[in-house]
Write a protein that binds this DNA or RNA. Structure first.
Lengths: 150, 150
DNA sequence: AATGAAAGCACACTGGT
DNA sequence: ACCAGTGTGCTTTCATT
């Protein structure tokens, strides 16, 4: 993990489809060596993958909610997590410690759709309680800061 | 937004570096047409970009916290958001409605590091109150569900 | 780890259906 | 919207340091 690897990760974070040849000009190494380094970053797990980023707003889902969730007693957590796959509005989720069991991020067309999702989660997925709020906007953060300390 | 576009987005979500030629075999169109479609998806904003995904745990930061934050009075929100760029542990953030002003995601090496981040946010970034909990694990969700309804 | 050379591929264009 | 052909540029492998 040297400076060059850090630069490569930063560049690929901005555009994962940059060619090795382009990257090589930025870091002043041969395209060959760049390809080697990127393969190593992937193999070591530092770079988990290259993903297309989808914008829910461009698909008409401009309303994003964050919902803390408490499950009913005796609800199997694995089943709950797996069941979320059938709810297309769920765009992210995590199990947390503390007062609530999970936190979900829900991308909805409008409040009416959010309402149906809330009802669905309560009726079919073992959700006992929700505490939701609206996402006003996301803060852009690059992951390159993490690299500085590694 | 037809079935083929949906497939392409799904495939590029899994691996954003797939070549147009590879994609063309999956969707049974020419590489050319696939490139056209991907360009259109990008131009329309549905695909916002292609990003390398970095794994904090592979860099020794296995402790991820979610922190709800309330700012002190008279703290400028733009300044706060901009100032977060200098805190490398901040890997995501959003402004929310409700009881708290923001929610951050903090990737830390250990509790001691988290403690220093908490102190830093309070001392230098106008944070009045934090409510934090540990991320036990993230739930894997693909964004392709969003596409089904568009 | 890094490099250059060369073969094989992929990409962007153009033009055509 | 889709495809084929072409020139150019990119990726990969191998030999070398």
């Amino acid at each position: 993990m040297d400076d060059i690897d850090r630069s490569l990760v930063r560049l690929l974070e901005q555009d994962a489809r940059r060619t090795y040849h382009e990257l090589s000009k930025d870091v002043r190494l041969s395209a060959n060596t760049v390809a080697d380094r990127v393969r190593r970053l992937r193999a070591s797990g530092v770079v988990r993958g290259f993903r297309a980023e989808v914008d829910p707003a461009a698909l008409g889902r401009a309303l994003t909610m964050v919902s803390d969730i408490r499950l009913r007693e005796h609800v199997d957590r694995t089943a709950f997590e797996h069941g979320l796959r059938s709810v297309p509005q769920v765009v992210a989720g995590a199990r947390l410690t503390g007062e609530y069991d999970y936190q979900l991020r829900l991308a909805c067309v409008d409040p009416a759709e959010f309402e149906t999702v809330v009802d669905l989660l309560k009726r079919d997925h073992g959700v006992r309680e929700l505490r939701s709020r609206l996402v006003l906007h996301d803060i852009e953060v690059d992951a390159s800061g993490l690299l500085d300390l590694a």
